[in-house]
Write a protein that binds this DNA or RNA. Structure first.
Lengths: 181, 181
DNA sequence: TCGATCATGTAACAGGTTACATGATTTT
DNA sequence: AAAATCATGTAACCTGTTACATGATCGA
């Protein structure tokens, strides 16, 4: 359900094609809502059928046509209505934690490797978030409200990554790495 | 995919009926993997068809029969194999963060209320986790490995909740609550 | 007497994943 | 010459959600 509203919000910031939206979701929306291009195209189609977005086809020589979408009035109404509805928290479903319930079937070395990879991933993400923080939100007070809210989402990404790193400190004690590389 | 292995792990700890498993998933597995009874029954059926679990029907007078499942050898093999395979991290999909991208369509009072509710939820969970920590893992060093690993999962729940509370401290500054109640 | 608990399921639907498909241009 | 980028989609499948269904017992 939320994907469509994420699309509407993104389009409201600036009209875009499915392709461009896919990129936004991959980059600065990745810590908020994940979606592949298939899902995005499908949902854009539905939104168009329902009149929540309008589409303008821009012919290009030597390239497939681009379909630029923008939010319609009906779309804005729908978005506002959704925003006013409290959303349930997403359920936790983490395969890594599932593994911890398998007891002695779990191989410590395999696990150590998986934790090491997770640590690397967290550190990379954290660095990327910090980079965004530096380039766009150096002085959060002077940023217009719209972007200050996005900064909050980024802060969530940062705090989330840090909290995983803190957990990894604890978890790695249980799975001592043999440190081969 | 991971649900089946969560079930196998849970059954390995102790054979159980679908009903009992549902309860475990609702209580001490909620911070690891969420699943409803419908999903669990469906998956148990498949696991049984595939021979990864065996079922023993226990007739009861005046109550529906209980079907007690236990992991078969094939099931244990499948579990071990899965454990050795690195699992991709779950994707982030958070409707609350999506809302932050809707800019001025977002009503501050509505948002303040949603944040307050989230805070309450986090605090409740944290208290429940702390309670588990106190009752089962007062002295983690003396606990057998199997349960020390489960303690790690609990630690993840605790750190996760704390990190959300830290974020809420920041977020609430952006949505000052009018404090009516 | 009403709701919770015990104990199992079926069915329809919504949402997300994976694979396949096309085809030109630009970069390595 | 190969791979990545631009730009769009279809189709099958798997997983998760929601609604519906049954029926007895036990505690408030």
């Amino acid at each position: 359900m939320a994907l469509r509203y994420a699309l509407l919000a993104a389009l409201q910031e600036e009209p875009a094609t499915g392709y461009e939206l896919t990129q936004r979701f991959r980059t600065y929306l990745a810590h908020v809502w994940n979606a592949t291009h298939q899902q995005i195209y499908r949902e854009l189609g539905k939104l168009h059928d329902e009149g929540l977005v309008t589409a303008e086809t821009i012919a290009q020589s030597e390239r497939p046509d681009r379909k630029q979408y923008r939010v319609s009035e009906a779309g804005e109404t729908a978005l506002t209505q959704w925003l006013a509805t409290p959303q349930p928290r997403p359920a936790t479903r983490d395969p890594l934690l599932v593994k911890l319930f398998a007891g002695d079937n779990l191989d410590a070395r395999v696990m150590a490797r998986e934790l090491a990879e997770l640590r690397q991933q967290c550190e990379q993400r954290l660095a990327a978030y910090r980079e965004m923080e530096r380039t766009w939100f150096r002085d959060p007070g002077s940023v217009p409200r719209r972007y200050r809210l996005q900064y909050l989402a980024l802060r969530r990404g940062i705090l989330g990554a840090q909290s995983w790193l803190a957990w990894l400190d604890e978890a790695e004690r249980e799975f001592p790495s043999t440190d081969d590389s």
